[in-house]
Design a protein around this nucleic acid. Structure first.
Lengths: 238, 238
DNA sequence: TAGGTATCCTACTCACGGGTAAAGAGACGG
DNA sequence: CCGTCTCTTTACCCGTGAGTAGGATACCTA
């Protein structure tokens, strides 16, 4: 119960080498370093969770000390917020990309969802999806909620448009949006252990499932197992 | 940034009155009190998250002091674990209920998913879904992972059976299971603010979406918006 | 070379919260 | 009436981790 947030001090994994000690060039590109801080934080949050990651951990990853991190960022909270925004921005870009395209709304929706899935599987995915408003100050919490809500309503709108243009089966737009976003958000939970697929592949597979559904399409009807007992049906009805 | 885990000390909400001060009977029903501790913990975790909930908070809710809580539970970690198990048990029960029923696998799957959704929307939903293995000791982490995996594989099995008996459209069982479970798990994130629907209603709506998918069923074909530009399609392909 | 500025460090403060020691307060059997 | 067992309290310990003060170092400009 003691040492769980352990990390082999400076594990040699040369992920994206820290811009400090790494390059002797010492370019004063403040922005580059700042981004390195944020990316590193995102990776650590992703690995151990927000609360199990100390700023000392992040600093250690960068081969720097804590005050240095504070030189680029004002608080841990803000760090999480920046990671969140970085993730969300990818999705907002996806929306901008598809608006106005002259294809059925379902195609536009699918395109957005593909980007959405990739974003969730990205480095900032965890932060974007799991940034708990409970962990943030009221102000930032509001901000995050608003960004999330924007995306949610964007999805709902595409669903409604799809129902109108006939490319989407009539349904409850709100519930459907929750289901789609939820399935994609959850990728952040399991995409970590098993990296055998790329984010794009996962997103593609999910979109296919969303579009088709479980029920078999009319095709070579395979009339093998048809309901035989009414009693069983009744018991399923609960 | 300071007082966020605030709680009006003893807000008069007589939810499920604490078995202490409440009853003068003073029954030595240790078990009853123990369960009250766990339920209260679940509610608090659900409201503020695991890390933002102190044992003092939980004790205060019960109108008791911290050592009393420790009298019924050995650690905060165990508290989370108990909440988790309480949630998962509902789902395991659902599996037991449907195994062997003489209906197509898709019907059995839908029944399980309905129970699943209700469980996630229940009091223990949050704990079940969000119990981070990072927050727990290696031993408990393993235990939780195993329980989760059991459920996951149960869903995959039902999907495979459905594909075999023709009640489910052929698909990647693993990915599909992830998508379904993810959508349902995510309910725990948003079902809190908006309680206008019951857990059962949500689960029902989700199952309908899963089964049908977005693509319109062959019916009164509404050939309104058909793809007109190939350029647009290409740009969507990314 | 002097003064200024940007960057990073050592060495702290301090509150919070998990967990414990040990002492009451009843209840009950004998 | 006393010892004992169960339950709950008051009063503490102490590690952790966010955040800071203030001093070095290096680099740039005049």
């Amino acid at each position: 119960m003691a040492s769980r947030r352990s990390t082999p001090p400076a594990a040699g994994r040369p992920a994206p080498a820290s811009p400090w000690r790494a390059s002797r060039e010492r370019l004063r590109d403040r922005e580059v370093k700042r981004e390195a801080v944020i990316r590193t934080a995102a990776r650590e949050f992703n690995r151990k969770g927000y609360h199990n990651t100390s700023l000392d951990d992040i600093a250690a990853r960068l081969e720097v000390t804590k005050p240095t991190v504070y030189y680029y960022v004002t608080s841990k909270e803000q760090l999480l917020f920046e990671c969140f925004v970085a993730g969300v921005e990818q999705i907002r870009a996806a929306f901008r990309e598809v608006t106005g395209l002259p294809v059925p709304a379902r195609a536009r929706l699918s395109a957005v969802l593909r980007h959405y899935g990739e974003a969730v599987a990205s480095e900032f995915g965890w932060c974007m999806v799991r940034a708990e408003d409970q962990d943030l100050s009221p102000a930032m919490s509001r901000h995050i909620k608003q960004l999330k809500s924007e995306i949610d309503h964007g999805i709902r709108r595409l669903i409604r448009e799809g129902i109108q243009d006939g490319s989407i089966e009539p349904c409850d737009a709100k519930m459907t949006a929750f289901a789609l976003a939820g399935a994609l958000n959850w990728i952040a939970h399991w995409y970590r252990e098993d990296q055998s697929l790329t984010g794009a592949q996962i997103a593609e597979a999910f979109v296919a499932i969303f579009e088709g559904g479980l029920r078999p399409r009319r095709g070579p009807a395979r009339p093998s197992a048809r309901p035989r007992l009414r009693r069983a049906r009744a018991s399923l009805a609960r």
